[in-house]
Design a protein around this nucleic acid. Structure first.
Lengths: 185, 185
DNA sequence: GTCTATACGATGATAGAC
DNA sequence: GTCTATCATCGTATAGAC
C-alpha cells in the first residue's frame, strides 16, 4: 500500500468515526504516522480527500445501476440486483460508505454539484425501473419517488452490521426479502 | 418566543444545515441577532444545545412507543401507529429530527450514554412488538433486528419532504403501506 | 442581558532545510 | 518525501462594564 493509499484509508476511517468537520489533519497525520505537513506532499487539501471518497462511491453506484438496467431482466429482478449491489459496495468499503452517506454535504460547491448530478442520475434510473414494474403489474401502485427513497434509506443502515451479529440470518437475503415485499403488488 | 427558545430554534436549523461541528457559536449568534458572548447568558455551552435537541427527540420517541405498546392492539396496528408516530414527530420539528438523526455522535460521554440508553429502550420495545406479530402469524419470519433497523432507517428520510412534492400521494399513508408490506406474512 | 475585549488552544495550510 | 517552524484565522468560552 502506498502512502497515499494509506492516507485515504485512514481518512475514511477517521471521517466515519468523528465526521468530516470534527476530524483534523493533525489527527489524520498521527494515524498515518507522519507529521501533518507531510500529508500535503500527497494530497492538495482536506476537502480533496472527502471529494475522492464521496465521488468514488457515487461512481460505483451509478456504474452498478447502469449495468443492472442494461441487462434483460424484469423489474423485480433488477431491484433485487440493486439491493445486492448496495450490500456488496457497502461490504467492500464500509468506512467510505459511511462518509459517502453522512459527509457529502461538506463538499465544496463544485464537487457538490457533481455529486448531486451523479445522485440524480442514479435516482432517475431507479425510478424508471420502479415505473417499469408498475406498468407490468409486478410492483404495486404508489409514488415511485417515495418507494425509491424508502428503499435507499432502508439499505443505508447495513454498514453497522459486523460478522458476529448476523446469527442465523444472511443479511443480503433478509434485505432482499424486506425490499421486495415492500414494493411487490 | 423567548430569546432562549429562539437560540434553540436557530441552532436546530443551523446544525441541521451545516452539521454540529461545522456550526460555530459565531454563526449561531449572528442568526439570533446578538453577539456571541451573549449566548452564554442563556446556555451553558454549545454541547448543551445539542444535548437538549437530541434528548428531547429521543424522549418523544420513547414516550410515544410506550404509549402505543400499552394499548390493546395487534402487532400490525402497533407498527402502523409507530410509523404515524415517526411521521408526526418529524413533521412537528423537522430540523431537530435531522440533528437527532445525524449529530448525536457528537454528544459528550455522559449525554451519549443517556442517549444510547433511550435508544436501547425504544429498540427493545420495537423488537418485542415485531416478535409478538411473528408469534401470532401476522408478521413474516426473519430477523426482528434486521426488520426493525430497516423500518427505522426507511422512515428516516421523510424530513426531506416538503408540502409541494407530495403530489397525489399522502406521505403517511404511503409510508404505512411500505412498512406494513415489508413485514407482513 | 447585552455589550466590548480578550484569552488561548486548535485549525488548515505553506516555506524552506535536508 | 519528510521534517521543523510558522502563519493567519477561527474555535469556544470568560471577565467585567453598563
Amino acid at each position: 500500500m502506498t502512502r497515499k493509499e494509506s492516507i485515504f484509508r485512514e481518512a475514511a476511517l477517521l471521517f466515519s468515526e468523528k465526521g468530516y468537520s470534527a476530524s483534523s489533519m493533525r489527527d489524520l497525520a498521527e494515524r498515518v504516522g507522519i507529521e501533518p505537513s507531510s500529508l500535503y506532499s500527497h494530497i492538495k487539501s482536506k476537502e480533496e480527500i472527502l471529494k475522492e471518497i464521496c465521488m468514488s462511491c457515487a461512481q460505483d453506484f451509478v456504474d452498478g445501476i447502469k449495468s443492472i438496467d442494461n441487462k434483460d431482466r424484469d423489474a423485480l429482478a433488477k431491484v433485487e440486483a440493486l439491493v445486492r449491489l448496495h450490500l456488496s459496495i457497502t461490504a467492500e468499503n464500509p468506512n467510505s460508505i459511511i462518509v459517502f452517506n453522512d459527509e457529502w454535504k461538506h463538499l465544496d460547491t463544485n464537487s457538490l454539484n457533481l455529486f448531486k448530478a451523479l445522485r440524480q442520475e442514479y435516482e432517475t434510473i431507479f425510478k424508471s425501473i420502479l415505473k417499469e414494474g408498475q406498468e407490468s403489474g409486478q410492483i404495486r401502485t404508489g409514488s415511485s419517488g417515495i418507494m425509491m427513497n424508502s428503499v435507499i434509506s432502508a439499505l443505508s443502515w447495513v454498514h453497522q452490521v459486523d460478522g458476529r451479529s448476523s446469527k442465523n440470518y444472511d443479511l443480503s437475503d433478509e434485505m432482499v426479502a424486506f425490499v421486495l415485499a415492500s414494493i411487490k403488488s
